[in-house]
Simulated scan of single mutants.
Amino acid sequence: MKKDDFEIGRELANIRLKRSLSQDQLADMMNERGHQWSRKTVWSMERGIRSIRLSEAYDLEDVLGVSLFGKAESEDATYKEFVEDRWENEVKDAVERIRLAYDEAYELGLTLHLVGFRMDDGESKELAACLSGFGEGLSRLYSDAPEFLHGKDAGEEFIRLVRGHVTPPTQEEDKA
C-alpha cells in the first residue's frame, strides 16, 4: 500500500518526537549529510506540504534508524513504487511551473503589445514597435506551447503521455 506525503509526514513527526529530537536537531543531522534542511523544511514535510526527495530518503531513514516507506515482499518493488511516486510528484511540480510561466508570458505579451500599440508619439514609435513585436512574440510562445500545457491538469496529462516510456532505476542502478 502506498503512503502519501501526509501519512509519511505524520509518521516522520511521530518518530522524531519518540527520539526526543526537535525539528532543528533533525535538520542539523540532515545538513551534516549534505542536505540543505531547516526547521521549516522538517515542518513542511511533517505536514505533507513538501515531499521527501529520493536523495534524502536513505539518509533520513538512517538518521532516524527506521523505515518510513515500508517494506514490500520485494524491496525492489517498494523502491520502484517510491521512485515512481517521487518522479510523478517532481514532474507534476515542474510541469505546473512551466504552465504558469507560459501563462505569465502570455499575459506579459498582451500587456506589452497593448502598451506598444497605444504609444504613437514621434519619439516613441521605435520603442512602441519593439514592445508590440515583443508582446506578440510572447503571445505566440503561449499559442505554440504543447496543448497539455494549456490545461489545469498539465502534470497529470504529461505523466499519461510518458508513462510506459520511462523505466525507473532499480535500487542498485540508482546507487551506481
Rank of each mutant, 00 (worst) to 15 (best):
G65W: 05
L141E: 08
A13V: 08
Y58C: 00
K40F: 06
L17A: 13
N89L: 09
R160C: 09
A154P: 05
M1G: 13
W87V: 07
V66R: 03
T111I: 15
W37D: 01
L68H: 03
K125Q: 04
W87G: 02
E81V: 06
G133A: 06
L26H: 01
Y106F: 13
R163T: 14
T78S: 15
E96K: 09
S22A: 11
A57F: 10
D28N: 14
I98E: 10
K71A: 15
E32I: 00
G137R: 04
C130K: 15
D28K: 12
L64K: 04
G116K: 05
I15N: 00
K80H: 09
G122F: 01
E61V: 00
S38Y: 01
L64N: 04
S143D: 05
V63T: 10
S20M: 04
A13C: 09
L112H: 03
K2P: 12
D5M: 07
G116A: 06
D121T: 14
M1V: 15
M45P: 01
T170A: 09
G122C: 02
S67T: 14
L60I: 09
E75H: 08
E126Y: 10
I15S: 01
K80L: 07
V63M: 02
S51E: 11
S44M: 14
F69I: 12
G133Q: 04
R163I: 10
P169V: 08
S74E: 10
E123M: 11
T78D: 06
F148L: 11
D76G: 06
K3M: 12
L12S: 05
E90R: 10
H113P: 03
F117M: 11
E90S: 13
S143L: 05
E157K: 15
R86V: 14
K71V: 15
E32C: 00
I49S: 03
